[in-house]
């Protein structure tokens, strides 16, 4: 799988997502990272909501994931990576389209997450895994 470039900034927290409670823990960590940069409620809510969507995808479709949260204090950005070694996404354009779902969601997960954040990147390879990266400005 093509890898997304290494992030600058400080690693804030790393979370393994293997059960549903881990989604809650990891998204709360994203919230603390935004609080640490003094984010306004709306900016924090957008990023935490988007992170919740991709963490759930990592668990439900990827079979589990690792969440990495980085703080870039200089640029007042929080970066969220969600990496899984699941089946990958066959048709990326379709998966990113609003309204599409291959599972049990409303189909606004990935496309919706993309709309809520300031930076969005995704690489995926069938049979290898998926790496989603989000960032929000505080």
């Amino acid at each position: 799988m093509n890898r997304l470039p290494r992030l600058r900034g400080q690693l804030f927290e790393r979370h393994e997502i293997t059960v549903e409670k881990d989604i809650v823990r990891a998204r709360q960590a994203v919230g603390r990272a935004m609080d640490g940069l003094g984010a306004k409620a709306i900016r924090k809510t957008r990023l935490v909501t988007a992170a919740s969507e991709i963490f759930r995808n990592g668990l439900n479709y990827g079979g589990g994931a690792v969440a990495l949260i980085h703080c870039d204090a200089g640029n007042r950005m929080v970066w969220v990576d969600c990496i899984d070694d699941g089946p990958g996404i066959e048709d990326m354009a379709l998966a990113l389209r609003d309204g599409y779902t291959s599972g049990t969601g409303l189909g606004r997960g990935l496309g919706g997450a993309k709309r809520l954040v300031d930076e969005f990147d995704i690489v995926s390879e069938p049979g290898v895994g998926t790496h989603v990266r989000l960032a929000g400005r505080a």
Binding site: K44, T45, R46, T49, R108, G112, R115, L116
Partner: peptide, 14 residues
């Protein structure tokens, strides 16, 4: 519902 939650839901199209 918190105001930021309402705004985010609308942005999500929900």
């Amino acid at each position: 519902m918190r105001p930021a939650v309402a705004m985010t839901l609308v942005e999500l199209g929900m």
